[in-house]
Amino acid sequence: MHELSIALSIVEMAEEEAAARQARIRAVHLKLGRLSGVVKDALLASYDMAAAGTALEGSRLVIEEVPIVGYCAKCQARRGVDGVQWFLCPRCGSPISEILEGKELQVRALEIAE
């Protein structure tokens, strides 16, 4: 359970961006990979707490979940991976050689009130 500290980091980052643009932020858009080790619901619950009393108070956190995509060396192709227990190519069954997507924890965009 480390979502609160992550929410605090997001709020801090958004505050910096808001100050640099002298704007008020209405929403923070976040990319969250399924392998990031961060639980969406817990992060959403922590966000309001983290934003309270800051320039971000009242803003929303919008989370876009990123599925796991791996590279299959045998098929030489990108493959979606279901779940976190079977890192196998869904087409040929051989082990996925590299994780391409799914570890993201990235502030993608800010929604600013003009």
Binding site: H2, I6, E17, L30, Q106, E111
Partner: peptide, 14 residues
Amino acid sequence: PRFVEVRRDVLKQN
């Protein structure tokens, strides 16, 4: 509302 792209990785303090 206006959207501005940021693309910054959130680094955990840890």
